[in-house]
Amino acid sequence: MDINLKRVGRALIVALEGELDLATAPRVKDTVDQVLARDAKLHHLVWDLAKVEFIDSSGLGMLLGRYNKISARAGSVVLMRPAVLVRRMLVMAGMGRIMQFVDSEEQALAKIGGDTDGQLH
């Protein structure tokens, strides 16, 4: 599982590549939680799921756990371009009711509502 992190203002963009299951979800969780813990200014989370080939309940549970953390900061979580099967799993798990699906980074940042401090890194 490849994890790529990028910060855009108050949003953390996490691009994942590979399969998200019990073997890989804990590392994603630890990586993201460390960044969130270090930086209280991060309010939003954008998951770039375009290159996620597989997800099961361990991956879904990990996403929900991070959603709960971000909600506690009154931020929002956005799911970017998941493949068909991954999207179906996300929808079945009810993620569509609490997180928004988007097709691009621009759309993701627009959903966050321009809450980016205007600074791009």
Partner: peptide
């Protein structure tokens, strides 16, 4: 204890 949604068997059935 944590971060489990209780969905695994639901997916298997589905």
């Amino acid at each position: 204890p944590k971060e489990r949604m209780g969905l695994g068997l639901v997916f298997v059935k589905e």
